[in-house]
């Protein structure tokens, strides 16, 4: 055994300090858990009241969403389609750009370029979404209307492009992590077999990282699903069931902002509908995010040593 180097008194006071820290951390954790439980409880209670009244089947299959109408309709499909359209559209814009940036940073960029691009990425991640929304409204949409005069003032295309811009840093950073998790000897082996670098990138690096890249896209899409400000500013807030990128749409989150407008009285079915939509949003976002995380751990296990 090693001789004790700490005196008994020192040990005691240090142990007390450690207990204090531990208790403090525990208290913080409890606050977080209680807050989360409270949020979930409200969500589940109000959504439960809603579904006691409107069957989940009708909720998911009817094609009109008009909770405030004289004869209210609660078909959530238009909101789901609108949300899916924005998330998928954003991914369509963000994936190629983000992935290519990641490959460039990982394989080609010199130290200075890499630092510069990392800085730009971090800066982009820090821009408030309302600023992106204003950019969509005052720059992207007017430009699109010059190109396609028929496009509506509020349209899905503009929202997809700018939400894509917003999730670009997420796609880039997570894709780069996926690329970095590919063992270097694998790339060396490709080069040692007389393949030019570009071929090693496309035939070895990208396939080996594909699981991680898919996860990156899913996690970024979960963010796009949760995005509100850009969508309301670019695509409006009017629900309709359409896949046309040139028309406006309403997403789950955009609808939820209307609760803040305060038209729906507490206890009404219209009020509860917000919580039903909130529950759908929660489950959807969480599901996509977890699917992404699962893919990350799977792909690390697959390409790792």
């Amino acid at each position: 055994m090693m001789p004790r180097s700490v005196s008994g008194a020192g040990t005691a006071s240090r142990a007390m300090g450690e207990r204090l820290v531990a208790h403090g951390l525990l208290a913080c954790t409890v606050v977080a858990v209680v807050a989360l439980a409270a949020v979930l409880a409200v969500l589940v209670r109000e959504a439960g009241l809603f579904f006691a009244d409107v069957s989940p089947w009708r909720f998911l299959t009817e094609i009109t969403w008009a909770p405030a109408a004289a004869e209210p309709r609660f078909g959530v499909l238009p909101l789901l389609v609108g949300t899916a359209q924005v998330a998928a559209g954003a991914a369509v814009f963000a994936l190629p750009v983000g992935l290519m940036t990641a490959v460039y940073l990982h394989q080609y960029a010199g130290g200075r370029t890499a630092r510069l691009l990392n800085g730009v990425t971090a800066l982009m991640a820090g821009v408030p979404t309302v600023v992106y929304g204003l950019f969509a409204l005052h720059f992207v949409t007017p430009t699109l209307r010059v190109l396609w005069p028929g496009i509506e003032a509020f349209n899905a295309l503009s929202a997809c492009m700018v939400v894509g811009l917003m999730i670009l840093p997420t796609v880039t950073v997570l894709s780069r992590e996926a690329l970095e998790s590919v063992p270097a000897p694998l790339l060396d082996a490709g080069l040692a077999l007389g393949a030019p670098k570009g071929r090693v990138v496309t035939r070895v690096l990208l396939p080996a990282a594909s699981g991680g890249v898919l996860a990156a896209v899913l996690i970024a899409m979960a963010r796009a699903v949760g995005e509100t400000m850009i969508v309301t500013l670019a695509a409006g807030n009017e629900s309709r069931l359409t896949w046309s990128p040139f028309e406006g749409l309403q997403t789950l989150t955009a609808f939820l902002t209307q609760l803040g407008m305060g038209d729906a009285a507490t206890g009404t079915r219209e009020f509860q509908a917000f919580f039903a939509v909130g529950a759908v949003l929660f489950v959807g976002t969480y599901g996509i995010h977890m699917a992404g995380r699962m893919l990350v751990s799977r792909s690390v296990g697959r390409t790792g040593p």
């Binding site: 000897p185 082996a189 040692a192 077999l193």
Partner: peptide
């Protein structure tokens, strides 16, 4: 590298 082939210590099958 095509004429002088190298096999590495860590086995590296491609996926």
């Amino acid at each position: 590298r095509r004429r002088i082939g190298m096999v590495f210590q860590k086995t590296t099958p491609f996926p």
